[in-house]
């Protein structure tokens, strides 16, 4: 996906489109355009929802406490 839009922003945009369409304030051509955009956003959100990309990471730091990056977090077995 070329445009990296966040789920939250996509959903907000979608909700705005729905509201606009429901208000009936825009013309037919514009409505169709918005609808198409809405469908695109919905698809995007659904894809994001289904994506099993959960990542649990742990921040790595240098001696001075500066963040250097992240690595996979291995759950400790006991607390």
């Amino acid at each position: 996906m070329p445009e990296e839009i966040k789920f939250e922003d996509a959903l907000k945009k979608l909700e705005k489109i729905v509201e606009t369409l429901e208000s009936g304030d825009v013309g037919l051509d514009e409505s169709l355009k918005r609808y198409e955009e809405g469908v695109k956003l919905l698809r995007l959100c659904t894809v994001k929802l289904e994506e099993a990309e959960k990542k649990i990471e742990v921040l790595t730091k240098d001696k001075n406490g500066k963040a250097t990056g992240t690595k996979e977090f291995n759950k400790p077995d006991s607390k």
């Binding site: 994001k48 099993a52 990309e53 990542k55 742990v58």
Partner: peptide, 21 residues
């Protein structure tokens, strides 16, 4: 952290959690 990760793993998958220990 255990409690939080347990809950997160059951939920919306498209998240990245970064722990700063």
């Amino acid at each position: 952290i255990q409690d939080m990760l347990n809950i997160i793993s059951r939920r919306f998958s498209n998240v990245t959690v970064v722990l700063d220990p």
